[in-house]
């Protein structure tokens, strides 16, 4: 039945929102109050915020050697370790482009904000295979809900 494309999920664990939705995004602008941008920040309707992060969460995570959904404290710790490896005067220069990414990953609000603004949906990491000795593994993630699981859970309600 899969006679044509079997698209693989991107390595960065996010899939674009439905193509249809993004294609008619322009029309959706109509639905947004005048004087407000479509790139609103989560939690506020009037923000003029633009996506602050050019790095995708997956790239940022790769720089730090962690998974996208690592908890804030893990990101901070990892960042600290990296910082210790370099003399302080070199660190800023070397990792200037990593700095926002640590915040992006460590703060759940900024992470969700990135998804919100980018039009991508976060997928669970359990759909991927995990590196050994990783700080983060599939024990921490629940599988994505699909129609079969939904039915099964309903029949057990």
């Amino acid at each position: 039945m899969d006679q044509f494309h079997e698209e693989k999920h991107e390595e960065n664990m996010i899939v674009p929102r439905r193509r249809a939705a993004s294609e008619i995004k322009l029309l959706r602008l109509e639905l947004i109050p005048k004087g407000k941008t479509p790139c609103e920040e989560i939690g506020s309707e009037w923000s003029s915020a633009q996506p602050a992060e050019n790095l995708s969460p997956s790239k940022a995570a790769a720089c730090l050697g962690i998974e996208v959904w690592a908890p804030a404290s893990v990101v901070k710790k990892r960042y600290k370790t990296l910082q210790l490896r370099y003399p302080s005067d070199q660190f800023v220069e070397k990792h200037i482009e990593w700095r926002p990414s640590a915040d992006l990953l460590g703060n759940p609000l900024s992470r969700l904000n990135w998804f919100w603004q980018s039009g991508f949906i976060p997928l669970p990491e359990s759909s991927l295979s995990f590196k050994e000795n990783s700080l983060w593994d599939k024990e921490n993630a629940e599988p994505i809900l699909d129609s079969y699981i939904a039915l099964k859970r309903l029949s057990e309600l």
Binding site: D2, F4, H5, E6, E7, K8, H9, V15, R17, R18, R19, A20, L145, D146, S147, Y148, I149, A150, L151, L154, S155
Partner: peptide, 16 residues
């Protein structure tokens, strides 16, 4: 129930 299940359904890994 069936419609909720259909909400979760998409084929060929394509959300369209």
């Amino acid at each position: 129930g069936v419609n909720l299940s259909l909400y979760y359904w998409f084929g060929l890994n394509d959300r369209n």
